[in-house]
Amino acid sequence: MQTLTDTWLIFKGQLTKSLRNPAWVVIGLMQPILYFALFGPLLKNIVTMPGFARGTTWQQFFVPALLVQLGLFGAAFVGFGIVAEWREGVIERMRVTPASRLSLLLGRVLRDVVTLVVQSLVLLVVGLLFGLRAPVAGIALAFVFVVLLAVAMASFSYALGLVLKSEDSLAPFLNSIMMPVLLLSGILLPMTIAPAWLNNLSKINPFRYVVDGMREAFLGHYGTSSVWVGLAVAVAVAIVCAAWGTRVFRHENA
């Protein structure tokens, strides 16, 4: 109960700060919208190739992928904020209050989840305006994915930020992880058209399953295993990352 109250307090404070400086929220949203508007149309004829699910429009192929991308990149860099807060002594100050340690993480993650859901809604509306057609249940399922991704990436980024305690090491670390994750996820083009070795390599990337699962959801194919595998992977990644984040926030020297 107390954890919930504390989480709410931290969330409120963090959200107030974000709203005071919404530039980052807007910048974070610009990237997928630019991808959608300037790269998406290139896919129009490609989606008819073998390797794509039959009858897929480029919007149905690309919007779920961009939602994953937004989830990955939107939340992956929140760790920079925690380094700044740590440097100012905010984290330590809060650790001396009776506030639950878990809430210090959850309140921040909740802010990032809300931010990402709002950004995803905007992206979805843009998609719908540009001819996206998808079942309501599939879209709802996609937002479950977005929330799980946000929880996973934000927890991961906060934990990493608190462990490294420096923007200078956090930036190259995140970039070197995010780049292969992006390329091996099939966000831009499906891994099914990749040569066998690349396709196999991509199978070690959990986010590949998330992308596949979301695409199936957008097509309304709830019966296929992809959706549920993707969901299971997303839940697992979220749990692992949140557990690590909690551990780091509980750790005495954090």
Partner: peptide, 24 residues
């Protein structure tokens, strides 16, 4: 603490009230 511990992006009153709330 030596470093203080107030958030430079927050307002004075917000910080004081939030701190009080964290102390229940």
């Amino acid at each position: 603490a030596q470093a203080g511990g107030t958030d430079s992006g927050a307002k004075v009153e917000e910080e004081l009230v939030q701190q009080g709330r964290l102390y229940r």
